[in-house]
Amino acid sequence: MGDDRLLATFVELADTLIDDFDVIDFMHLLVERCVELLDIDAAGLLLADQRGHLRLIASSDAQVRWLELVQLQNDEGPCLEAFAAGDHVGHPDLRTAGERWPRFTVAALESGFVAVDALPMRLRGQVIGALNLFRSGTGDLPGTALSTARALVDVATIGLLQERSIRNQEILTEQLQIALNSRVVIEQAKGFLAHRLNMDMDSAFTVLRRYARAHNLKLAELCTAVVDRTIDAHTLASSAAIRRDQLSPGREGERLRPRAT
């Protein structure tokens, strides 16, 4: 990892935080940079809702198997443990982790991941979520990468809170719930577009994100407009300077890859 690359990323993230920015898009940018900077294969950011579920808010990959892998961690796995302990939990070789996390290990190995790390997302002693990192090679995450990951997860917390000072628990709860609901709107719009434009969920998300960026819209606002039909699905596909062949439709069962941006 080059220092220049690291610096450029933090400048990019800091720049985003200045304006009236889109939290969900910011979180996606952050997990994508995690994959590049930390030299890992996939990353996901999870927030805890008030009812005890870790929910995926942004991921570098949107394939079904990946989603299942993340969701499984509401029962067992490094993310759940990192969240509960408020500390880093990692495993350098999941082939020997079968006793600790029987179901998670099988699912991770099937998806081609051998090493995993999870870092808690903290705010003043309270844990509000976790960053999940996956690698296809064995070994511990190098110390420098771990430090960078910790810094990135702190930036994610700042992004979630936006410009508002967290005076109390109530504002934190409000922001968390807004972010979680935005995520649901996005999933609904992805499904809508996936059918209308006959594409997979990952491509639908790419279309939405590019259009939102090109037209300076917040993702959740755009997604609401899509499912409410105030914007036509085909307008999105044609006007965001996207040609269908530029999108990379993922194949079912294909090994997970970080999406190139």
Binding site: L54, R55, V64, L67, R183, F192, L193, R196
Partner: peptide
Amino acid sequence: LHDPQLHQATGMIAAQ
């Protein structure tokens, strides 16, 4: 409600 596929499916059905 924590399952993204529930919401994706809902979106697909709305389009269908």
